[in-house]
Write a protein that binds this DNA or RNA. Structure first.
Lengths: 113, 113
DNA sequence: TACGAATATTCGTTGACACGAATATTCGTG
DNA sequence: CACGAATATTCGTGTCAACGAATATTCGTA
């Protein structure tokens, strides 16, 4: 995973665009109307999203249909999946480390006496 | 899901910190050494990460052990999971929309004759 | 080819933020 | 309580990105 993708999604309006595109492909003007943004804003954000590979465009006459790309979404899922050990609430590591520190403190104190 | 979490993760050094914390809790100085950052930078980034709820600190004497919090990671997983329909490569929606547009074009052309 | 619709791009401005240096705070210990 | 270690916070600086307005481009059609 690269932080660029996350950074792109971190911008509120881009996030909204992505959320909208989840429900299906949309034209620029469609997005503009639904999200209440200026046309240039939508195009600019879509350019950023396209640059990081999150979306792609399909031309239809003057319109461009934007849709999400599978790969980065899949990658994001794979990345966050590596954090299972966290969200499944395993605190053994923490406990171990705390224990270790406590032992060290005690031995330090003992050694210093 | 809120974009704030993603924005926090979008900063490269914060991303590295989170990746490091995935392997277990760390002290500020530990993070500093492993990632080659200045102390103030580490503290500042940890402050941001704490503000959005991604990490929490546990004091041990002068040290603070930072560790990831389960909730936001879980939330992130839940959010990205709603995009299954994307990464499982379903293009029916797209095809439908394209068809619809094609039909419209044809009827337009027919109506105009 | 001229025109309009849809979209892209440029440009100047403004606010946010990452960084480093310096200083402040917390906390255990002599 | 003075001191040092670990961490937090403040402050000034420079950079970058979002925004709006304006302009440019693309493409179908008369």
């Amino acid at each position: 995973m690269n932080p660029e993708t996350l950074s792109a999604l971190g911008e509120p309006n881009r996030f909204r665009i992505v959320e909208l595109l989840r429900t299906g492909p949309r034209s620029v003007n469609d997005i503009r109307g639904r999200l209440g943004l200026r046309q240039s804003q939508v195009s600019q954000h879509l350019t950023v999203l396209k640059a990081v590979g999150l979306v792609e465009a399909e031309p239809h006459a003057q319109q461009r249909l934007y849709k999400l790309r599978a790969q980065p979404v899949k990658q994001l899922h794979k990345w966050i999946d590596r954090y299972r050990c966290i969200w499944e609430e395993r605190f053994e590591q923490m406990d171990e480390l705390v224990e270790e520190m406590t032992r060290k403190e005690k031995s330090d104190a003992a050694g210093r006496k």
